[in-house]
Amino acid sequence: MSTQPPQPPVPSRLASIAAAIDILDQLPGGNLILTKVEYLLNWGRAASLWPLTFGLACCAIEMMAAFAGRFDLDRIGVIPRATPRQADLMIVAGRCTIKMAPIVRRLWEQMPEPKYVISMGSCATCGGPFYYDNYSILKGIDQVVPVDVYVPGCPPRPEALIEGILKLQEKIKVEPFLRRTVAAQA
């Protein structure tokens, strides 16, 4: 016999939407949406990720293809920005050399919080095909900046990058964002 109290089931996203619709139906007039402020903020942040256009090597070409007509990342609110100060997502697309690493770090520091990093391709993840006998490539971008999502592949197809962004959105949606900000300020 377990002494632990039964855990409440974790509401999935669909379930919470359904619950919201339920509440709406019961209210007179039904034009009022009740939700957690945090959920709303997270939803907004997740649906408008603005990445820094920051191509390093071959993977950047696939990233460009993902922004272009057929794959069209604009659909999910991903619009490339040219400056780190307007961006909240950094897609490290391609291999990063030791000469480039301090610059990647500085760009990451210039981005405003909250910021996220996607490491695209096996080079950015771990050095990839340039791991052995190599004197100039950084063996993984996570040595200099923290990474949220790793997208494997050499190069990852644009679909894989989109999947990575969707995974990041899932992560953003469940983040205790407000609580952390308040705690940090207190």
Binding site: I98, L138, Q143, V144, V174
Partner: peptide, 23 residues
Amino acid sequence: RWLVDLATQRQREIEGLGLGERA
């Protein structure tokens, strides 16, 4: 040298963080 230092510091930063937490 600077790369080793930076990587070690990054290691220390993420120590003790559970999964799901931002590293």
